[in-house]
């Protein structure tokens, strides 16, 4: 299957629609979604991405030029679960595009594809818990099985908006699923040596990866998401890490790596920088390469 290259967060399909039909203009908030949309949409779509892979998607600066991109969209695909709540509403207001207004066919919350959301709070939610997401952990695209589900949801919505290309959308989504499914099994099998090693994460964004690969996450340096860790918490984490033999602390490139490295040093572990999005590291050129790199780095840290 041909794999599109995602560079600097901008993905563009060829403008050659069937029978000369105008391509569907799809704007995705994240590079992962942009790759999936381009795979499903193919030459029937033009795909643009708002948040470059190297940016923390929680805190993208809402530049007005991004609103202009949204103003041209026929379909907006976003992660949902309030991941983009800090910047997407402001951009949508500025874009003034009725085609992608919430509740319309052009508005696609990709989290609707999930069969299971992790870390949904069971008790009262308060900002005393930090930047907690009341609807659950939003980093579900770090489980490629969810990527397959999202691709199918995208195909259905694209088909609704461009019925004349519905068959092609469905075919591409099916081909993508057929390509990813054996890879998903192979990645999980390859992760066996890592399953024996408990990990510490910097920010609580690797739960879906851990759930899929069967990894043990001992805790997070940011014990309250988005809030700087207290010295007491780091001390407790250090003690637990040493007691359980933690050897790796995993973090995304946009996390505060100096703080992560210090925490890793204190518990006798190494910092493993993993791509948390397509384009987050130069080698993570697409969704498949991202998981290849995640597995390669975890296995290298484990000495495999």
């Amino acid at each position: 299957m041909p794999r599109l290259t995602v560079i600097a967060g901008l993905v563009a399909g060829l403008v050659v629609g069937a029978a000369g039909a105008a391509p569907l203009k799809v704007v995705c908030t994240l590079t992962d979604l942009g790759w999936l949309a381009a795979e499903v949409g193919g030459e029937d779509t033009e795909v643009a991405v708002l948040c470059p892979g190297q940016y923390d998607p929680h805190f993208l600066p809402a530049r007005p030029s991004l609103a202009r991109e949204l103003g041209k969209a026929d379909l907006l695909c976003y992660n949902g679960l309030e991941l983009e709540i800090g910047w997407l509403p402001a951009l949508l207001e500025k874009a003034r595009n009725p085609r992608i207004r919430p509740g319309t066919a052009g508005d696609l919350d990709c989290s609707q594809a999930l069969s299971r959301v992790l870390d949904v709070p069971t008790g009262p939610v308060s900002r005393a818990q930090g930047d907690v997401h009341p609807l659950g952990n939003p980093h579900y695209l770090l489980d490629p099985r969810n990527g397959v589900l999202v691709a199918k949801l995208m195909a259905a919505r694209m088909s609704e908006l461009r019925p004349e290309a519905a068959e092609r959308f469905q075919d591409r989504a099916n081909r993508l699923a057929a390509d990813l499914t054996p890879r998903i099994a192979a990645w999980r099998e390859a992760a066996a040596p890592v399953r024996e090693r408990p990990l510490v994460q910097y920010h609580t964004q690797w739960e879906y990866l851990a759930d899929w690969l069967g990894l043990e996450l001992l805790g997070a340096v940011e014990h309250r998401p988005g809030i700087s860790p207290s010295p007491r918490h780091v001390e407790e984490l250090e003690a637990r890490g040493r007691a359980t033999g933690v050897r790796e602390l995993i973090a995304a490139p946009w996390n505060h790596l100096d703080a992560a490295r210090k925490a890793a040093d204190r518990m006798g572990a190494v910092l493993v920088e993993l791509p948390a999005a397509v384009g987050a590291l130069p080698e993570a050129v697409d969704y498949v390469a991202m998981f290849d790199l995640i597995l390669a780095r975890l296995l290298a840290a484990a000495g495999e």
Binding site: Q54, H58, F59, P61, W254, N255, H256
Partner: peptide, 11 residues
């Protein structure tokens, strides 16, 4: 003029 580093969240 506005510059916001992409190197780290809240960088």
């Amino acid at each position: 003029y506005k510059w916001i580093s992409a190197s780290a969240s809240k960088g």
